[in-house]
Write a protein that binds this DNA or RNA. Structure first.
Lengths: 210, 210
DNA sequence: TGTACATCAGTGAACGCGCGTTCACTGATGTAC
DNA sequence: TGTACATCAGTGAACGCGCGTTCACTGATGTAC
């Protein structure tokens, strides 16, 4: 889940990307309210009015951040699962491979500790307006739809061991990563996300392989 | 997971509890940095110096909050699992019953949306010192040890389907709740935590029942 | 039971600093003819 | 290709407000004898 390279961007767009990168790290480390415009411009080496040229209000930085993150995740997610689909005939194995790669990509982060921007914002949602809440939801819902579609394909070919709601199971795939990120941050142990996804994958295999 | 009742407390202790309750709601809603002493004292109807009589610095409020939360969770957790152990002969069924009750207790929160205080703090850990990080870890580790001990008892009587690391599986029980809370907040849908725990319980049963 | 004293649970006023935001401006870059 | 003009990407100085923190204080409650 990479950021567009800076070479082809105009000066202004490059500054903007730098500000977004700095803000993302800072917000994942200490939260939105504790991340000051002052520290961002010091690191980006511009003045405060330079910042407000790019983002009329602080909350516009938050919105831009979520929009960019959503786009990056949508792109990364799409590529990961399209690649996994192409590499496996069996839809179950394709999903498992995709989920494994997704977990791996989730811990690649600009910060020392992994963190999901949308999750970080969701624990500070009281600060934000409806637009931001919609962006947070979109980020989650996009992943969920991708996984749900693949679960349907699997369930069509091999009936599950027991009746199960596929929406709930799609949520599980998201929740596994989100929960593992929290545990990773608390334990300060990088392996957690991959470990937890491995357990979920083992569960999926057992469940659909009868 | 309830708070000690106010009747038996001294005046000062009662004010302190009120401040902690207000702070907990506010922090779960918008984060620690965005929660001002000013808003807490307005709601508690005391002056600012009254606040500083109880908590010499703002961070002492955070520490007191985590300590209280840890104690409440330790107590609630202990009772839930002791009760489940007493009600079931089979250690697997006892754990499943305990986990179900734990999930139910996790969504009972002072805020409209469920939220784990330690998780909220972990997404703002850059603000805090080593003592706070230790308190966050303690909260997590205590739950994990309880679950791990029960998993060992289960694995001793019925060997698992496949080799599995019980520490990792104990983490899964924690991560399920944490991840589900995030999804619940994002989707604004109260059922998520119970649903996700139900899936994990089904998985546990399948895995240890061979 | 009454008095003396200590601690508790606050009040009230003031502080300095850093925050987000505004405004009038300037030099660099891009576009039209 | 050169010139004219518009837009872009900033600068610099100032703002008011709310934040966490300090300090000297007071009245209420608890304790010892």
């Amino acid at each position: 889940m990479s950021v567009p390279d800076g070479k082809t961007l105009s000066r202004g767009a490059r500054t903007r990307e730098v500000l977004l990168d700095l803000a993302q790290s800072a917000i994942l480390e200490k939260g939105y309210a504790a991340t000051s415009i002052e520290e961002l411009i010091a690191a980006a080496r511009i003045t405060k009015s330079g910042f407000f040229h790019h983002f009329p209000e602080k909350i516009d930085l938050g919105k831009a951040l979520l929009r960019r993150d959503n786009a990056i995740i949508a792109d990364g997610f799409g590529k990961i699962f399209a690649g996994a689909d192409a590499a496996h005939d069996d839809p179950l194995e394709a999903l498992c491979a995709g989920l494994e790669a997704y977990a791996k990509a989730s811990i690649v982060s600009p910060t020392p500790r992994p963190g999901c921007l949308a999750a970080a914002f969701s624990y500070q949602e009281g600060l934000f307006d409806e637009e931001i809440r919609a962006l947070i939801f979109e980020s989650y819902d996009m992943r969920r739809r991708q996984i749900r579609a693949r679960l349907e394909r699997i369930a069509a070919t091999r009936p599950p061991r027991a009746p199960i709601d596929l929406d709930t199971l799609a949520d599980t795939a998201i929740a596994v990563v989100q929960g593992a990120i929290v545990v990773d941050r608390v334990r300060d142990n990088e392996g957690v996300v991959a470990q937890q996804m491995a357990i979920f994958i083992a569960f999926l295999r057992a469940f659909f392989r009868g």
